[in-house]
Design a binder for these strands. Structure first.
Length: 150
DNA sequence: GCCAACGTTGGC
DNA sequence: GCCAACGTTGGC
């Protein structure tokens, strides 16, 4: 089993929204690195840290799991959709998504500030300045180190 | 294939 | 709201 971290803006779709709907298709990702991870690497049952970005206290707020393997993100082919991509061909889909399932909220937010202070987390892309990757792998030791902070 | 222009992300 | 970082686009 693999571990991941996925970012979302709480004003758009936060951990409380995920709790309400239980399962959410993670569509609209238009970044090739993130696409490759969703399409090729994610497996059902993988665990995910749910991260709130672009908000008052950015940080990890909950845990989710991967509910489906990667499958084509057909919102890319819908001209009405927010993340429509005219270059995406339904016969040869450019973008992929997975379904994400709510597991639990953390007892508290583990802020980005606090994550940056941890020596064990210095290699995480997340703590690098200017990291814009919205989906990233988390190692087993990083996963445990973060849970130990809860 | 280079690189300037542009758009987006996301912390602050 | 500002702006640094970074990915993408497109002219050449």
């Amino acid at each position: 089993m693999q571990y991941w971290l996925m970012k979302s803006e709480p004003d758009v779709f936060g951990i409380d929204d995920l709790q309400k709907v239980s399962i959410e298709p993670w569509d609209g990702v238009r970044n090739y690195q993130a696409r490759n991870m969703m399409r090729d690497l994610m497996q059902v049952g993988d665990q995910v840290f749910f991260y709130h970005s672009n908000c008052e206290v950015p940080g990890i707020v909950g845990i989710a799991s991967i509910a489906t393997k990667g499958y084509p993100d057909d919102t890319a082919c819908n001209p009405e959709a927010k993340y429509f991509d005219p270059k995406s061909d339904p016969q040869n889909p450019r973008w992929y998504r997975v379904d994400v399932q709510f597991v639990r909220k953390l007892t508290r937010t583990i802020s980005l500030h606090e994550l940056r202070e941890q020596a064990a987390l210095q290699d995480m892309p997340l703590v690098r300045k200017g990291c814009r990757l919205s989906v990233m792998p988390v190692s087993t030791t990083e996963w445990q180190a973060i849970l130990d902070l809860e």
